[in-house]
Every structure is written in structure tokens, then in C-alpha cells.
Amino acid sequence: MQLLAQVSSETDLYVAQNIFFAVIAGTMIYAAFRVVTTANVVHAALWLVVVLAGVAVQFLFLGAEFVAVTQVLVYIGAVIVLFLFGVMLTRASMGDDETVAGEKRAMAAIVGVLLFAVMAVALVDSFEDTRVDIDGPQGVVEVSDAIFSQYIVPFEAVSVLLLAALIGAIVVARKD
């Protein structure tokens, strides 16, 4: 995090960084809110881009550079494009026919708020003022070392999973 100057070394508080975080987080929450409320599917996909980019910035905050780059490449580069293809192929409504019954929305909102309440209480209760100290970005070398030594078995499993997903998607979606 070289780009953010440390303002007060005594309190170890990065003011500029926190302001920046607040702006990004606010944008993300607003964008996420739009994703789940907008009636237009294409708009929803575009708002999703904002959220995903915000998540990538959060990864940068946390010093996980490689994950941030992967996030941009895989999510914004590939997944969103997939979604847009999906929208076109299904000719999903571009307009505002998203008429969700009030009852259903209320139910979902209750569940969501309930979940958030539980999580917020638990988190605040257990972590209070715990700090994250980021000494510097995590190197790609460290990540790749970990993947190819300690986590080699899950890595191989993921490769099999991707193959299975590939075949599965073809089998499910092909015309026959």
C-alpha cells in the first residue's frame, strides 16, 4: 500500500486509506443494492461490474494483489461477459417487467435483515477493534508456492471440477 501515505504514526491510523475505504464500500453497497433491485437485467449486470471492481479494490487494500488481478480478469473479464451472453440468449426482459410480489420481497427482506443482524452482532462482539496489519503486498511467488505445495491436492481437485463443469455445461445446454 505504497500509494497511501501514513498520516499519523502514533495512532497507526491511515486516515486517507479509511476515507478511501468508506467511499469504495459505500459505492459497493449502493451498487449491490441496485443489482438486487433494478428491473432491467442489463443494468443489473452493469451494476454487478461495479461491485466486482469494488471487491478487487478491497483485495488491494488487504494486500492480496494477485487475487485482485484474478478477480478483475475472471469476474469482470469473463463472468460478466458470460452473463451478458446469457441475457441475450434468453432474451431476458430488458424492460421493467420485474413485478415481484410484495409478499415475496418482504419475506426476502426479513430474512436478509435477520441474517445481517445475527452476523453484525457476532462480528462486533468477537472482533471489536481487532486490527489488520498489512506489511506489504503478498507476492505472487508466495501464493504460487503455497498452491503448488501445501494446497496441491485441492488444486488438482479444482482442475477436475472445472473439467466436470465444462462437460456438464455442454451436456446440459446442448440441443438434442
Binding site: 415475496k104 419475506m107 426476502a108 426479513i110 430474512v111 435477520l114 441474517l115 443482524a117 445475527v118 452482532v121
Partner: peptide, 24 residues
Amino acid sequence: VQNYAAIMFAGAAILAGAFVLLLA
């Protein structure tokens, strides 16, 4: 499916809440 999912999520949230309360 969404109704089932709602029930599931709500159940999980309530259980987790109970757990948090118990721990507290």
C-alpha cells in the same frame, strides 16, 4: 425453490442467532 431457500436461510440465521446468544 426460493421459498424453500428462504425457509432454509431463516432457519440457519435463527440457529446461528441462538448460538451467538448462548455464547454471549
